[in-house]
Design a protein around this nucleic acid. Structure first.
Length: 252
DNA sequence: AAGGAAACCAACCGCTCTTAG
DNA sequence: GCTAAGAGCGGTTGGTTTCCT
């Protein structure tokens, strides 16, 4: 069967974008809006693949992008969300205004991974490195873990990055994120699904993800709307309620 | 000052998911 | 319901910059 390529590769530029290409893309999107990436390059007079245009716009040219270093708060939020969602960079990016999935992914791979490793935490599982073989998978951001780390490293100074001598700080000290992946689900022992004013709330909505693409809850249509998080803070998939129905972690 | 190593990050590739016909 | 096109996502690559010896 096969499928036609997304663009005429023989007639497209590759590699770094030039200022002129950027300008053309920006001007075109300002005039016509995003969308229809396949036909955009031709319409905009660009010798680029549509995918390439989309990526350039999303990751670099969008006016709402926040450039510059990640803050400590963003670091901790990324770590927390990665613990919940895994490598769902786009979902994580959805919780960090002005940041792109690509940016977060790069940042994770270059900074946070190392940071966690130096803290003695496996970046993939968010569990202590020496605690690899347990039956119950626990993702923990609780004080207990910090305590353990503290014991291993009483100084609170952790890694090479820590040559800057920044003490490790718990951003959300009262946030208990102990998550357990338990044996197969049985109706009788299932916890109540997350509910908002009596309505079931899926993880996507509870995270306030804007496009609500993975939303499967009864109020999906309002995912990401201001109403979903207007009452001062979302319940990160039940974090405030103290549990996580891990079945809802299946995003797609 | 020079060369190599490490870090960083933009961009590409290939796959999956969604949607329209 | 099936198929193909379009869009989006995550993993990976490769060029550039910075750091170290």
């Amino acid at each position: 069967m096969g499928r036609s390529p997304c663009c005429e590769k023989a007639h497209t530029n590759k590699g770094a974008w030039t200022k002129e290409e950027d300008d053309r893309l920006i001007a075109y999107i300002r005039a016509h809006g995003e969308g229809c990436w396949r036909s955009l390059p031709k319409a905009a007079g660009l010798l680029r693949c549509g995918k390439s245009c989309r990526l350039r716009w999303i990751n670099y040219l969008r006016p709402d992008l926040k450039r510059g270093n990640f803050t400590e708060e963003e670091d901790e939020l990324i770590i927390m969300l990665h613990g919940l969602l895994g490598n769902k960079w786009s979902l994580i990016a959805g919780r960090l205004p002005g940041r792109t999935d690509n940016e977060i992914k790069n940042y994770w791979n270059t900074h946070i991974r190392r940071k966690l490793l130096n803290r003695g935490i496996d970046p993939a599982t968010h569990r202590p490195l020496n605690d690899a073989a347990r039956d119950v998978t626990t993702i923990s951001f609780s004080g207990a873990k910090e305590e353990k780390e503290q014991r291993n490293n009483p100084s609170g100074f952790v890694n090479k990055d820590d040559e800057k001598k920044i003490p490790v700080q718990e951003t959300c000290p009262d946030l208990n994120l102990d998550l357990r992946i338990s044996p197969p689900y049985h109706q009788s022992q299932a916890p109540e699904p997350l509910k908002t004013r009596g309505r079931t709330l899926c993880l996507v909505c509870s995270l306030g993800v804007k496009n609500g693409k993975g939303c499967a809850c009864s109020i999906g249509g309002t995912a990401g709307s201001s109403s979903s998080n207007s009452n001062s803070g979302y319940d990160f998939s039940g974090l405030k309620t103290g549990f996580l129905d891990y079945r809802s972690l299946e995003m797609k």
